[in-house]
């Protein structure tokens, strides 16, 4: 499903060159749920950005479903992000001006889905994360756990094959963290979604199928 061949990412400023990822080789199979662990600044989020086609590697090859996408046009990459990938961020990144429903609808605005169908899919996704009673609320009116559930609903509304979760429980207490983890596990089990999750929490990592570890931009396990 996801393959990284000798992927290196270097951030350059005028005076400093930082190697964020150093010759990473990784394969994630379809339907797999893996966790990525490592200390802060070891390149975990950079890995997700590159897998999620939000950033390009400085060197190496990234393939999703056997195809290399990073050399494609912005429009094609945007389509892949829209149809194949769903993102969950540590700090939720919800659009504060929009209600829960409108936030969840965002991915569907960028594909040909009629208004009625959009409403149905959004309602389903919100129901799946147990927030139907908050559908008309705004992010500022929700708790952290509820915000993350909205973010999960947004990530799954378009039924993507891959979910990339960047420390999805990082800003949540243990109870909400466990709830989010349960949702992710059920997405993996019920929908067959391939999930790559960055986490600092060993307990959560244990609940995934496989854990890979990073240190200073290199994969150490």
């Amino acid at each position: 499903m996801i393959q990284l061949h000798d992927v290196t990412k270097i951030y350059r400023t005028r005076s400093v060159e930082t190697v964020a990822l150093d010759s990473i080789n990784l394969t994630v199979d379809k339907g797999e749920f893996i966790s990525v662990m490592g200390p802060s600044g070891c390149g975990k989020s950079t890995l997700l950005n590159i897998v999620g086609l939000l950033d390009n590697p400085s060197k190496g090859l990234v393939t999703i479903d056997g195809k290399q996408w990073d050399k494609q046009s912005d429009k094609v990459i945007a389509q892949v992000r829209n149809r194949t990938i769903g993102f969950i961020f540590q700090s939720f990144h919800l659009i504060n001006a929009l209600s829960v429903t409108d936030n969840v609808e965002v991915p569907l605005l960028y594909r040909n889905v009629g208004s009625k169908e959009r409403k149905r899919l959004v309602a389903e996704a919100i129901e799946r994360v147990g927030l139907s009673h908050r559908a008309k609320h705004f992010p500022a009116e929700l708790s952290g756990g509820q915000c993350q559930r909205v973010a999960i609903a947004r990530a799954i509304v378009g039924n993507p094959q891959i979910i990339l979760a960047d420390e999805p429980t990082g800003n949540l207490d243990s109870r909400n963290g466990a709830e989010v983890m349960n949702i992710l596990n059920s997405l993996n089990a019920d929908m067959g979604a391939t999930i790559v999750m960055v986490t600092h929490d060993e307990n959560l990592a244990e609940k995934t199928g496989r854990t890979i570890r990073f240190f200073d931009g290199r994969q150490v396990q």
């Binding site: 999620g52 939000l54 912005d74 429009k75 990459i77 945007a78 389509q79 992000r81 829209n82 149809r83 769903g86 993102f87 990144h93 919800l94 659009i95 001006a97 965002v106 991915p107 605005l109 960028y110 594909r111 947004r154 378009g158």
Partner: peptide, 15 residues
């Protein structure tokens, strides 16, 4: 942040 979210979820530059 909003634009980055939109791009993450499939909005192209032109969109």
């Amino acid at each position: 942040e909003e634009i980055a979210v939109r791009k993450s979820f499939g909005a192209s530059r032109w969109v």
